[in-house]
Computed example of a mutant assay.
Amino acid sequence: MRNIFISMLATVFITACSSNGNKFDASGTFEATEVIVSSELSGKILSLTVNEGDTVSASRVVGTVDAEGIELQKEQVEASISSLNDKTADVGPQVALLQNQLAVQQSQLNNLLHEKQRIENLIKQDAATGKQLDDINAQIDVVRKQMGVTQQQINVQRNNTSTQNKSILSESKPLQKRVEQLNDQLKRADIVNPINGTVLTKYAEAGELTSTGKALYKIADLGAMKLRAYVTGDQLSQIKLGQQVKVLVDDGKDKYKELVGTISWISDKAEFTPKTIQTKEERANLVYAVKINVKNDGYLKIGMYGEVVFK
């Protein structure tokens, strides 16, 4: 819509060129690539330091949107991560109790083994009976089984606690990712200028509320302008992409300033001649739009008229 609007601004003043002896092949108006800079967050604009007419470099931070709510969310998630360790269980006391029990059983086993050795010696001297040896062996088997059960209890206690703690600590990774997401949103609180250019229009001021995608200002690189002109079908054979052409712009009364331009785009579709655009041929039915890159020396403006002479 912007390009159409600019094109419709052109007038038939070009006829004055022929009366002064100047000849041209096509005419049109100058455009620039305009970028609408928007906020990436919703909130109150804390600062916006650009003004209309300012020249602003790319990647420069030109303002900030209030992100206190996001900062609080980040602190909450970080607190949740810190509290995970408090939720884990300490297996130490339970294991220590079972290990003490195991040590007592080991002491009992040692005593029984010593008593067994004594009875075996007495049997060799016919001072003890086989039944006494059988009884002591049975007691040894009971104590050994008790020790096996206690050791299993220690292993089960450790495994259960480890599994429980892993389940709790596994929540840390998703929470860390959430912190990274919030950090990314905090970065978006800064309003970063995307291109080198001049601020054309400012839509918002510090202190106002904004939302995601809402326009804050419009900027364009005026160092390289594009002249959008129209040629007839007969003229297509005279031009090609990359071709250098002569561009004429007004320079006072009955005078023209000459610039060098390069054809950067040729439309592949014909269109009806815009009513306010004059071409070389008088009111051709169908024309083709072309764009010509022209280096701006500071005098070219958006919407300014220009004529083209094909070399």
Rank of each mutant, 00 (worst) to 15 (best):
A96M: 13
Q132M: 08
T276R: 12
I14S: 14
I292C: 04
Q101W: 05
E258T: 12
N100L: 15
A58D: 08
Q243Y: 02
L300C: 01
W265L: 11
I219R: 01
S19Y: 10
K74F: 01
I154E: 03
N159F: 12
D254F: 10
D54E: 04
E271S: 08
T88H: 04
L84G: 02
V192Q: 00
K275F: 10
T15M: 13
L182E: 02
N121R: 15
I136Q: 01
S59M: 03
S42D: 01
M8S: 15
A189K: 04
V50C: 00
N293K: 09
R228H: 13
L200K: 02
V61Q: 05
S59T: 10
V309Y: 08
D234C: 04
N100K: 13
A204P: 06
G213N: 11
N165C: 00
R2E: 14
E40G: 07
V77T: 06
W265T: 08
S167H: 14
A270E: 11
D66G: 00
I123M: 06
I195C: 04
Y203S: 08
K257R: 10
V61W: 01
L133F: 03
N155Q: 14
Q117T: 14
L113E: 10
N165D: 08
A96N: 08
V199A: 00
I81Q: 02
S172T: 12
V192D: 00
R228L: 10
D134R: 11
K301T: 06
M8W: 15
D25V: 00
D221E: 06
T201Y: 04
T210L: 00
N296S: 07
S83F: 08
K253P: 09
A103Y: 09
Q101Y: 05
T161D: 01
Y217F: 09
T15F: 15
T64K: 08
K218D: 07
S57M: 10
M147V: 09
V95A: 06
K74G: 05
D268Y: 05
K257E: 09
A79F: 08
N137E: 15
F5I: 12
N160E: 12
S83E: 13
Q176W: 06
E115C: 12
G207S: 00
E34C: 05
G69D: 12
Q106G: 14
E205R: 01
S7T: 14
K131Q: 12
